[in-house]
């Protein structure tokens, strides 16, 4: 094992953990808002993949990573609009439509990618990095913690902003009310469907951004089906965080580490088959669910469509 614990291995593990954590952090934060408002957003995997596809395409055509991120948000929101109309406005089953959206985006992006690029996978140039003089030069942790793309720090700020929003603002209370007692919110003059639509669109934006990060920064290219369950891991994070953004952050770092162990072990030249290594993050999720699954607390009205006056 001593051969594994070199500076290069640790550095790539830490870097990998952060790079892998950001997409699932964004997805988890997005899903959390949907779930707070009472919508179980299974379509998040599709929103993320659409964000990755549109985000990559925009960045590839314009050579601008920032426009790419905007494109990712747009792709996620467009997918979320379908979900918002069908599941919130029309009250259709959230799980069936969520699976439908995920399958549809998987097929659509693979199809479009095939007709645009055939079997080639063009790469984006390496992203520019934020350089903080002094800190970035530290060994091991320097390049991993302080040399990331600006979006990483924006994601961290989002954790704080969301925590404040949920605890201290009226909007946060309205969101919880829509998820716990939609009828009570309705009687109090709140707009249940309106706030749920906002929550679903926010989920789409965050998941799309996460997808764009995955494609543009994480991989530097788009591959069909590339999200590979990252959105579903985001759902698990949101379920276990019991409504707290900080817990989503902690969870995403743990799963990010499990995900990056995959790449780090490959870098270190370990001869364990990739299939086994790829099982790590999912095994970690199951382990956490077995140990703490009972503690997951979900809003009372989660998954149920709200119809005024319905029994």
């Amino acid at each position: 094992m001593s051969g594994l614990l070199t500076e290069a291995f640790l550095s790539s593990l830490l870097t990998g953990a952060i790079v892998a954590a950001i997409p699932i952090l964004l997805a988890g934060l997005g899903e959390q808002m949907s779930e707070k408002a009472g919508v179980l957003n299974i379509g998040i995997e599709g929103m993320m993949l659409m964000g990755a596809y549109v985000g990559f395409l925009v960045a590839f055509e314009t050579n601008s990573l920032w426009l790419g991120f905007l494109g990712g948000i747009l792709g996620g929101v467009l997918t979320a609009i379908v979900m918002a109309v069908l599941c919130v406005r029309l009250g259709l089953n959230q799980i069936v439509i969520g699976i439908g959206l995920t399958l549809g985006v998987e097929g659509l992006t693979a199809l479009l990618h095939h007709f645009q690029f055939s079997r080639t996978y063009p790469r984006l140039p390496a992203p520019e990095r934020l350089n903080i003089p002094g800190l970035t030069d530290l060994p091991v942790i320097g390049p991993s913690l302080f040399g990331r793309h600006l979006i990483v720090y924006l994601a961290l700020i989002a954790v704080v902003v969301l925590a404040y929003l949920y605890r201290r603002t009226n909007l946060g209370m309205t969101l919880s009310a829509a998820g716990e007692r939609p009828a009570a919110l309705d009687v109090a003059g709140g707009n249940v469907l309106g706030i749920r639509v906002v929550a679903v669109l926010f989920t789409g934006a965050m998941a799309g951004l996460g997808g764009a990060y995955l494609a543009n920064i994480g991989a530097g290219l788009f591959i069909p089906f590339m999200t590979g369950g990252a959105g579903f891991i985001g759902i698990v994070l949101a379920m276990l965080a019991r409504g707290r953004p900080l817990w989503v952050l902690i969870g995403s770092l743990i799963f990010g580490a499990a995900l990056s162990l995959t790449t780090a072990l490959q870098v270190a030249g370990s001869n364990i088959p990739t299939d086994v290594i790829q099982m790590l993050p999912f095994a970690a999720v199951m382990l956490v669910l077995v140990l703490f699954g009972r503690r997951a607390k979900l809003p009372a009205a989660l998954g149920a469509a709200y119809e005024r006056g319905a029994r």
Binding site: V82, L86, L90, G91, L92, N93, V96, I97, I99, G100, L101, L103, G104, V105, E106, G107, L108, A110, L111, H114, P224
Partner: peptide, 23 residues
């Protein structure tokens, strides 16, 4: 030369249209 992934699109459209029919 149409990849099989198109079946996924068809299945997804089916799920969504089915939901709309129910509605």
């Amino acid at each position: 030369g149409v990849p099989q992934d198109f079946t996924l699109v068809l299945v997804a459209s089916l799920l969504i249209c089915l939901g709309l029919g129910e509605y």
